[in-house]
Write a protein that binds this DNA or RNA. Sequence first.
DNA 1: AATGAATGAGCCTTCATTCAT
DNA 2: CATGAATGAAGGCTCATTCAT
Lengths: 216, 216, 216, 216
Amino acid sequence: MEARLLRQQALSETRRALVLDAARAVFGEHGIEGANIREIAKRAGYTPGAIYSYFENKEAIYGALLAESLDRLNTAVQAARPADASAAAFLKAKAQGWFGFYSANPRELDLGFYLVHGLAPRGLTSDLNQRLNARLHEALAPCEQALLAIGFDAAAAPRENTALFAHGVGLLLLQHTGRIRMFRQDACDLFDHYLDALLLRVPSPPGVRSDAARSR
Amino acid sequence: MEARLLRQQALSETRRALVLDAARAVFGEHGIEGANIREIAKRAGYTPGAIYSYFENKEAIYGALLAESLDRLNTAVQAARPADASAAAFLKAKAQGWFGFYSANPRELDLGFYLVHGLAPRGLTSDLNQRLNARLHEALAPCEQALLAIGFDAAAAPRENTALFAHGVGLLLLQHTGRIRMFRQDACDLFDHYLDALLLRVPSPPGVRSDAARSR
Amino acid sequence: MEARLLRQQALSETRRALVLDAARAVFGEHGIEGANIREIAKRAGYTPGAIYSYFENKEAIYGALLAESLDRLNTAVQAARPADASAAAFLKAKAQGWFGFYSANPRELDLGFYLVHGLAPRGLTSDLNQRLNARLHEALAPCEQALLAIGFDAAAAPRENTALFAHGVGLLLLQHTGRIRMFRQDACDLFDHYLDALLLRVPSPPGVRSDAARSR
Amino acid sequence: MEARLLRQQALSETRRALVLDAARAVFGEHGIEGANIREIAKRAGYTPGAIYSYFENKEAIYGALLAESLDRLNTAVQAARPADASAAAFLKAKAQGWFGFYSANPRELDLGFYLVHGLAPRGLTSDLNQRLNARLHEALAPCEQALLAIGFDAAAAPRENTALFAHGVGLLLLQHTGRIRMFRQDACDLFDHYLDALLLRVPSPPGVRSDAARSR
DNA sequence: AATGAATGAGCCTTCATTCAT
DNA sequence: CATGAATGAAGGCTCATTCAT
């Protein structure tokens, strides 16, 4: 009884994942505007109606896709390993974790931008929205902790983390749209550069020179 | 003959501007997704078919709208007045010129992001693309010159200018999408903060060693 | 063997009743258009496919629902008690029995009207149709008998009964659709009024003046 | 200029009427539930999208169809000629006018019932609703005036008119659904019968016996 | 240049019903 | 009996674009 139910659920989950795979693929090929239910269904080997067994509506698919993407982001951040045990190395690793993830996977970036722009309210339920926000915060939290460890105070750390995130997002946008080539710059270099400058701005604790400052 | 031709061209240009006015209004009210040819035509006092006398297709309208927007951006930057004659004040004024323009006019930002996302290749002809790039460069050029005047070298100035632009763009995106509230930060404050930090990183001219330069 | 078969049939009947209960509830909440098989199945604790074990198709469910409704109608008519032993009081009680039933339960009226409008031939089998007709006749029979008792002859009684029914149906329709408010009238008052006028029209038996006639 | 505009409008009106013709035909063949935009368009020689140039949405078509129907109803009532100059004859003629119209044209009755049942709020705009109500009132007004002329007072006339309408509607419903055959009665006979009984109920003016009363 | 009717392709969604399990 | 996934046909509607006038 129980076992059968579980197997059924697992199967259903698998098929849902299949639909999501198809959606991801279609979205990857046609972009978020060009993706439509018919195409996703065809790709998944279904008729359009069948999709609605797995997702309430089109927007819900993108919501799920986005949630997935943020999971991958977190995985990437968690996998980022610092070069040494210093807080500075930790910051660089984690920051480059999320930046590199989006830099290397433009479609994930599209997804993120879509969240920001296109997701209709019904697809982005309040519940989902909070979960997504939480996942994003989670991905950025290691950087904030590193900033605190490095010597930024409780007010400065979140501020610097937000600025760091904004900087990365801006660079990613410029890179993604090809505009950065216009400036004859490289997004990754600039991001590294920003991180270096940030570390130089570490406030010295009173009467003591910080490691970061001294080691330079 | 010649005169008549000129007059006709001028008239045509005027009417094209009328369509663009309508497009701007409609887009301002309904957003980029909600705007459609019928609505624009109606607003311009035309029927849908007439629009195609002035624009190849819908995307071309947005291209033109974007070009206009970049004109306004340039006007805003040119109008920005420094607090004093210093290069630093000049930089701050010009940077806040473009940042403030987009911060205060979200629709212009939408337009800019639309370029990035939605504009189909046929709407964004290579020609238009170059013109848009040029206008954007023009808006950012004053900052780059200021950076040179301040002391950044020929390699550093464009790099810092690009970074500055990326930083602003990232903040604008976060602000525009409400995500910055999630971080409990303010986009304008952060932009000022970035500018201040940037000015602190000014390299010392030869013969004098700044703290920052010495520690390197 | 025999017993087992009977038990199974009884069980089946019970489960069929369960489905009907669910259908009634769903129909009561969402109306006849808003009701669908999935919802009914869910409410009944079944999956959609299971419904087809108990009913040929959707229309058959409504047919059964309607039969039920006519049962309730009959119960209501039977429960109607005259004020006194006179045939006139009996007529009023029974007529108000069926009229009041539909007046107070708009959903039953919907069901009745659905029969009239929406039930497809396949749902309304000839067999079911005859059963429904019989049940309706049964509900109206007391009135016809009262009309005979009052003094209408064998030709007049069915005629007056049909007219009475039509009058009530018309009033119910006007009431149900809110149109009666437009006329600033009240359906129940008008029905009473009709009954009173009907009683005044009782033909006098030869050589005898009826009470009703005399009291004029 | 003016002439051309007028001609265009006339043409457009004609085409709208063509769509309405098609809608009427489709509705006549498939009933109100079976009618759909694609079918109407096909019948009118259009593609589905074109329909929306003439009507806001599907419901609006039915609204227009209904308005037409009520116009025909009024025409029928106006065309009804009394047998003689008496108020009684006038009442009979006008009442049989609207009753006969619906009795002879079941589709018009369907339309009327659809108004009552199915028309969605957006199709039945408040404006249209009032116009339809007014047209219905207009069709019934002659009867009410006749009732007044016959001797019913200001309170009784509208009441009797509403009852008369309800009676007719009830009979039409029974006739339309074939249920009247079950009662072995004829709708038109019963309606005549009701009218005769109604005329017998004319209240005597104080101190004077009415013709109707005397003739009994 | 302008009209505006019409196209045609497309979109999302619903749902009674079937059928292998 | 019951499941429940899937179908398939349909439905209302939108809109950029075309073209005869």
